[in-house]
Write a protein that binds this DNA or RNA. Structure first.
Lengths: 152, 152
DNA sequence: GCTGAAAGATCACGCAG
DNA sequence: CTGCGTGATCTTTCAGC
C-alpha cells in the first residue's frame, strides 16, 4: 500500500478526470498505456483507489438542503452502534465520532427543510441518543474538492 | 436542467462507476450507446454532471487526520469573505455558513494532529475570525457515499 | 438508432534493471 | 523477479446519416 511518485501522479490524474485514457495519463507522466493500466489495476486491488464516480450537482437530483447534526449519546454507546443506526438513513451522507462535548457529528442531505426535520426526528428516536443539536447549511462555500495527492 | 427518468438512470450508473462504457450503461437502461453518450454530453454541458473523479483512500495519500472547525466571525462578515479566505487553504475540503451560534463550519483534512493545529491557527489568524471551536474526528462511520439519484 | 472509421483498451510476449 | 514497452487484436467512441 506504498505509493511511489508515479502512483501519486496517476491518482492525481484520475482524480482530475476519472475518464482519462491510459494513454493520456501515460503521456502526462512518461509511461506507456499498458504500464499505466497495470498500476491502476494494482491501485484498485490494494484499495488505494476505491472506485470511480461522477460528480453531480446535488440540486439537479433534488437535494437542495443540507444540515449538520451533533449527537449527544448516553454513557456507554459504541461508535459501531451509532454507525449501524445512521447507516440505515440514506440522508446521512457522512458520520463520525468526534472530540468535544458531542459524541458524533452527522452530515445530512435532504429535499427541503421539512425533510431535514424528519431525518433529525428519526435520528433522535434512536434509544442511545440523548439529544441533538443541528445547524442548517445556509450557503456552501467549498464543496469537497477531490483531495489532492500531495500533502506537502 | 430538468432530468428525466433516463437521465437519472444514467447519472446513477456513472456515480456507481464513472468508467463504465456507454454500451454498458445503454444495455442497463435500454438505450443505444450513442444515445447514452449524447445524454451524458448534455448532462455535462448543462452542469448536472460536473465531472468524473477517482475515489481514493485518504490514508493512502497521507491524509490521516480530519477535523471540523466552527468559525465565530465578527459582526459584518460576508460569506464570500469567509469563502475566499478559506479557499486559500488546501486542507479545507468543505466550508459553509450555518444557522446557530457559529457562523461557519469547516471540514479540514491534514497529515496529523499537529498539522490540524497549524491549519486552525492559520484560519484563526484571519482578521474577521473572533474565535474557533474545533473537534477532531475520532472514527469515521460513514464516508460520503456518492449521493443517490432519487430522494424518494 | 444505426453504421463505419478512428481511437482506445487489453493481452501476450520480449527486454532491461 | 519485478516492471516497462511493443505490436496485434478486439472494443469503444464518435460523427456522419
Amino acid at each position: 500500500m506504498e505509493l511511489d511518485t508515479l502512483d501519486r501522479a496517476i491518482v492525481g490524474a484520475l482524480i482530475e478526470d476519472a475518464r482519462s485514457t491510459y494513454a493520456e495519463i501515460g503521456q502526462r507522466i512518461g509511461l506507456s498505456a499498458p504500464a499505466v493500466k497495470r498500476r491502476v489495476d494494482r491501485l484498485l486491488s490494494t484499495g488505494a483507489i476505491t472506485g470511480f464516480t461522477a460528480r453531480v450537482e446535488p440540486s439537479a437530483l433534488g437535494w437542495t438542503t443540507e444540515a449538520y447534526v451533533e449527537l449527544f449519546c448516553r454513557g456507554k454507546t459504541s461508535p459501531a452502534e451509532i454507525g449501524t443506526a445512521v447507516a440505515r438513513l440514506p440522508e446521512v451522507i457522512s458520520a463520525c465520532t468526534i472530540t468535544g462535548e458531542a459524541d458524533a457529528l452527522l452530515h445530512i442531505r435532504a429535499k427541503d427543510v421539512r425533510h431535514v426535520e424528519q431525518v433529525i426526528e428519526r435520528v433522535a428516536a434512536e434509544p442511545f441518543v440523548v439529544r441533538t443539536k443541528s445547524a442548517i447549511v445556509l450557503s456552501r462555500l467549498i464543496d469537497d474538492p477531490p483531495l489532492a495527492p500531495h500533502p506537502a
